[in-house]
Simulated scan of single mutants.
Amino acid sequence: MISCIRGEVLEIGLDHAVIDAGGLGYRINTTPATLAGLRRGQSARLETTLIVREDSMTLYGFADPQARELFGVLQTVTGVGPRLAMATLAVLEPDQLRTALSTGDIKTLVRVPGIGKRVADRLVVELRDKVGVVPGPDAGESGGVIGGPVRDQVVEALVGLGFLARAAEQTVDAVLAEQPGAGTAVVLRASLTQLGAAR
């Protein structure tokens, strides 16, 4: 099992990246949010899962272990394979997905191409008690729980892109103060915009 890959980003496509690790170029299928945090020619680290089929071996990559765990959990549901699981994570941030599953939010789940009401119902029934995070009754409390890992992930991504740790932390804190419930991709984009303007 290949659980993670670190190396230089050689190529960034619409749904994948190629990372050079130990002289080998690994094609890794991933989500738009994860691709947004990669830069060609710079070092990156992705959590990965290798799916082996009779006619293929496919690597799927994630910015953090939480997303990789959800990718695996989604596939325990009948009718959900790697492609649909990845599509789900492309549309919904891990925190959004956990919340939708734990609260039975069918409307949010059916936003994912390939997930109809029947599959959404099955996801909720089978995964409601497995996702691990149930939002608190107060939005502020929920934001506090989510903000920690989001902050850490975005700061780590910015430092990996070459920004100073202190500048990254200050910028991410400012973005989260304005958008306390924002997901990783939103915070990363806003932080990059602010840091780019400051240069």
Rank of each mutant, 00 (worst) to 15 (best):
Val155Arg: 00
Pro113Lys: 09
Asp15Cys: 06
Thr34His: 07
Ser56Gln: 15
Val18Lys: 03
Leu164Tyr: 02
Gly132Leu: 12
Val125His: 06
Glu178Arg: 12
Gln194Thr: 04
Ala168Asn: 05
Leu127Asp: 05
Gly41Thr: 08
Ala157Pro: 08
Leu97Met: 14
Thr103Tyr: 01
Gly136Val: 00
Ala177Arg: 13
Leu10Asp: 03
Gln96Cys: 07
Val187Ser: 07
Ala17Pro: 02
Leu10Trp: 09
Asp129Gln: 14
Glu93Tyr: 03
Thr30Phe: 08
Leu89Asn: 11
Leu24Ile: 15
Gly116Thr: 10
Asp64Ile: 00
Glu11Tyr: 09
Gly81Ser: 12
Gly181Thr: 14
Ala21Gly: 11
Gln66Cys: 10
Ser56His: 08
Leu127Ile: 12
Arg199Asp: 01
Leu92Trp: 05
Leu10Lys: 08
Phe163Gln: 01
Gly181Pro: 01
Pro32Leu: 06
Ala139Tyr: 02
Leu97Asn: 06
Arg111Leu: 11
Gln42Phe: 06
Arg166Leu: 14
Thr30Lys: 00
Ala139Asn: 00
Thr88Leu: 00
Val186Gly: 01
Glu141Arg: 12
Pro82Asn: 07
Lys107Glu: 14
Lys117Trp: 03
Gly181Cys: 01
Ser191His: 02
Phe71Asn: 13
Gly160Pro: 06
Gly136Gln: 13
Glu141Lys: 08
Leu50Thr: 12
Ala36Gln: 13
Leu176Pro: 05
Gly104Tyr: 02
Arg27Cys: 10
Gly72Ala: 08
Phe62Arg: 04
Arg166Tyr: 02
Ala63Leu: 13
Gly196Glu: 09
Glu11Leu: 10
Arg45Gly: 08
Ala90Tyr: 02
Leu127Cys: 10
Thr31Arg: 09
Ala168His: 05
Gln75Arg: 14
Leu164Glu: 15
Thr88Gly: 10
Val18Met: 08
Asp105Ser: 04
Phe71Trp: 07
Glu178Asp: 15
Asp129Gly: 14
Tyr60Val: 03
Gly61Ala: 10
Val134Glu: 11
Tyr26Lys: 00
